[in-house]
Design a protein around this nucleic acid. Structure first.
Lengths: 319, 319
DNA sequence: TTGAAAGCGCTAACAA
DNA sequence: TTGTTAGCGCTTTCAA
């Protein structure tokens, strides 16, 4: 004790409290010497704001989500928040969310998981602000930000058509995935506008192994496509490896492209043409919006901010 | 209010409190109906234990660490803990740790980052239990668990020698990395025991691009190796792609193997022979040990538990 | 600008 | 088995 009250110490650590600069320095110096750190937990108890932001995480690993989670965590930390991980378990979808609520998280970012509507309702009830990335949930008060998926499909169609391909096939992501459906919608619509034959459609999943299987399905088709548009990159890489296992050559026999631009797409072994997600912009926007909503206790506006992707041409579509 | 005291409610939520089963059910039912959840933040204020476990995370993405983080998060959550992410920023190595300390994290798992010793000292001072994975830090009170790296090097040497290779080269990880040095030590020692010529050594980094470069270095060597042992998989995949870019064939021209067994190593395009880390066992052990130390307020014993890896033979070493 | 005092939601020691 | 009470470390009125 150096003769100041508890309140003075508190004020010294609060940048916008009214305190003399002299006292503040005195307290801060002493704190440094004694190794004192304010207790964020006690603070959130009184201020009714924890500073905690949860990120929902699928149990299955996926390069794109791992990248996204990292970027989100960095952005949140840089803005003064603290990240809590919510690993969504197959067996108990709600557990992680209710745990997070017990810890009074201020916000929840959902980029990946299929959560139950019960869990989402819980969040709304407890005033947890929601931020959705690349997905939309009916009847939920949340802001969304993501890739313009319809546009991505259109870009792919334009690009492949421009390359002179006519017979095309779309390899979808998980059934019911909005991202996959929008990409398909844009792709097929644009092809028909261009007067090209309708693309074939393969129902698939967002992972490498499904891509391998899709390759076999493609090889069994009576009408062989010239170009393959995959709902995302990891799937496209699987398709490429599947085709190569059967002795085919990409791009000579088939042009293949994806969406995302994960690091592996740029590996020379694949050199995958893809539509790059503006990941930095998306995560930045999502975090900015979420944290400012938390700060100002503002309701979500329900906006869906969409950003166009950038087509990156690589070897997988160039003979 | 249904006529019980605050303490009774508290006891209803504490499994080992003395309370009649009837009252507990009554409270739990009412809580369910009203949507009441105990406030974990308030609890940790009094109990002096937050239930929070931090995971230090490098800013650079890496399949192995992403996998590990996911597994750790799941294990921690399953054991009743809550995971906080500590993204270690290049510019401010200590920020994330001091933030975590403000949030009174009970433990910190370091699997990846080069933290400053100041940050580690802070942890010890504030009673944050430490758990190291695949690394050892001089003079730090922590328990470590990881792969037996020396043994991994020995296994690689035995395996490649058994395949009849004589001229070998080792592609290292980051300079100063203990994992890489131990693997090299085991590898080179075993080769000399087997009476084989000493392996060449290339100083490298733990990422794909460095692998690409290493391939060029190898190609420029006057004495061409027959087999290449890489400090980890991501590096090995880079080496393979680098060699193939130069028109070489793996495994015909060069046998390549790595350590880790990341998902990409099993992709048909690479089919990389590798020494698999017992990731499930390692994460399970680390979490069990850490959480039980937190629970019993036990000091770390300083143990380093090592687990042997399992050699997975794939195409990259079989002509 | 400062200090005193109340109280955030909970747990634990004590008494009944 | 229950209720009463004190207090965890902080912020925030309210007075001075």
């Amino acid at each position: 004790m150096l003769g100041v009250s508890q309140s003075t110490v508190s004020r010294a650590f609060n940048p916008k409290a009214s305190i003399s600069e002299k006292k503040r320095q005195m307290v801060l110096d002493a704190a440094n010497k004694l190794g004192y750190t304010p207790n964020a937990i006690a603070r959130s108890l009184i201020s009714n704001r924890s500073g905690l932001v949860a990120i929902a995480l699928d149990s299955e690993s996926n390069p794109m989500y791992d990248l996204q989670t990292r970027k989100l965590a960095n952005a949140i930390q840089k803005r003064g928040g603290q990240v809590v991980l919510c690993p969504i378990d197959k067996d108990d979808l709600d557990l992680a969310i209710s745990r997070a609520i017990e810890y009074q998280v201020d916000g929840l970012i959902i980029a990946t998981s299929r959560l139950t509507s019960r869990a989402i309702a819980q969040c709304e009830k407890f005033g947890v602000h929601l931020s959705l990335i690349n997905r939309y949930i009916e009847g939920v008060t949340a802001n969304c930000v993501g890739l313009d998926n319809l546009d991505a499909g259109i870009q792919a169609a334009d690009y492949l058509a421009g390359k002179g391909f006519e017979r095309m096939i779309y390899v979808s992501g998980d059934a019911g995935s909005m991202t996959s459906e929008e990409r398909w919608k844009g792709f097929s619509k644009r092809l028909s506008e261009l007067g090209l034959p309708a693309a074939d459609y393969i129902q698939c999943h967002y992972n490498f192994e499904s891509g391998l299987q899709a390759a076999n399905e493609i090889l069994a088709k009576p009408h062989q496509p010239q170009a393959i548009f995959c709902a995302n990159d990891i799937l496209a890489l699987g398709v490429i490896d599947g085709l190569r296992q059967a002795g085919k050559n990409v791009p000579k026999d088939y042009a293949v492209m994806g969406v995302d631009d994960i690091p592996m797409s740029n590996w020379p072994g694949y050199s995958l043409t893809t539509i790059q997600q503006p990941l930095d912009k998306i995560t930045q926007l999502a975090v900015d919006d979420l944290l400012s909503r938390i700060q100002d206790e503002k309701e979500a506006s329900g906006d869906y901010l969409m950003h166009p992707g950038l087509l990156i041409e690589r070897g997988s579509t160039q003979v």
